[in-house]
Amino acid sequence: MSIHKHKHHIRSVKCMVLTISDTRSEETDKSGNLIVNVLEEAGHVVKIKRIVKDDIDVIQTMVAEGCANPEVDAIITNGGTGIAYRDVTIEAVKSMLDKEVPGFGEIFRMLSYQEDIGPAAMLSRAIAGVRQHTAIFSTPGSSGAVKLAMGKLIIPELSHIVNELKKDINA
């Protein structure tokens, strides 16, 4: 089967958007709002949007709730991915994954490097994977990083990924 036929079954994906930050509010959550807008423009539905503290327990609680919610097919987080001591999103999410999709972080860093970020791209921590039947993507919190991840990686593959995760349910 060709990749085009394989990806032909497009579906509207129900999403949860989490901004991980100790400083953002609804008014200043530029990246979270950008994710919502990009998802909706692509025909997807944002069921839940939250801002949560950069705390492993809080992040894991929200991700677990999203994965247990039948109204959520995918979770997209932004923020808390840096190398500062308080940045714990990657550690929180990675330990919850049933399967990691390492290509997401690898390609994200390669694209960041090519888009004038240069060697600082090695500091860009991003991860994607699966928990149960839910896709999870964690991106840095800058709007440039969110635009890159959403435009070049997440939106082009989101329906395909969710189709793959859901096809064996009730089979």
Score class of each variant (00 low, 15 high):
53 K>S: 15
9 H>T: 11
101 V>H: 02
23 T>N: 13
130 V>C: 10
139 T>D: 04
22 D>L: 10
160 H>S: 08
74 A>R: 01
13 V>P: 00
64 A>Q: 04
12 S>F: 00
88 V>T: 12
165 L>D: 01
29 D>I: 07
80 G>T: 07
151 G>I: 04
127 I>N: 00
2 S>D: 14
22 D>I: 07
57 D>E: 15
171 A>C: 08
14 K>H: 12
78 N>L: 09
31 S>M: 05
105 G>C: 07
82 G>M: 10
150 M>H: 09
152 K>C: 09
134 T>I: 04
101 V>D: 01
70 P>C: 00
104 F>K: 03
57 D>H: 07
83 I>A: 07
78 N>E: 11
57 D>P: 00
15 C>R: 03
112 S>M: 04
123 L>A: 14
47 K>D: 00
28 T>P: 10
103 G>V: 08
120 A>V: 12
140 P>A: 11
49 K>T: 10
94 K>A: 14
116 D>L: 11
8 H>E: 12
115 E>I: 02
25 S>L: 13
109 R>A: 08
30 K>L: 13
26 E>A: 13
43 G>C: 08
110 M>S: 09
141 G>C: 11
86 R>H: 12
168 D>G: 05
12 S>I: 02
149 A>D: 00
98 D>A: 06
11 R>Y: 02
169 I>K: 10
106 E>V: 11
62 M>C: 05
110 M>H: 12
112 S>D: 06
127 I>Y: 01
134 T>S: 06
12 S>W: 03
146 V>K: 04
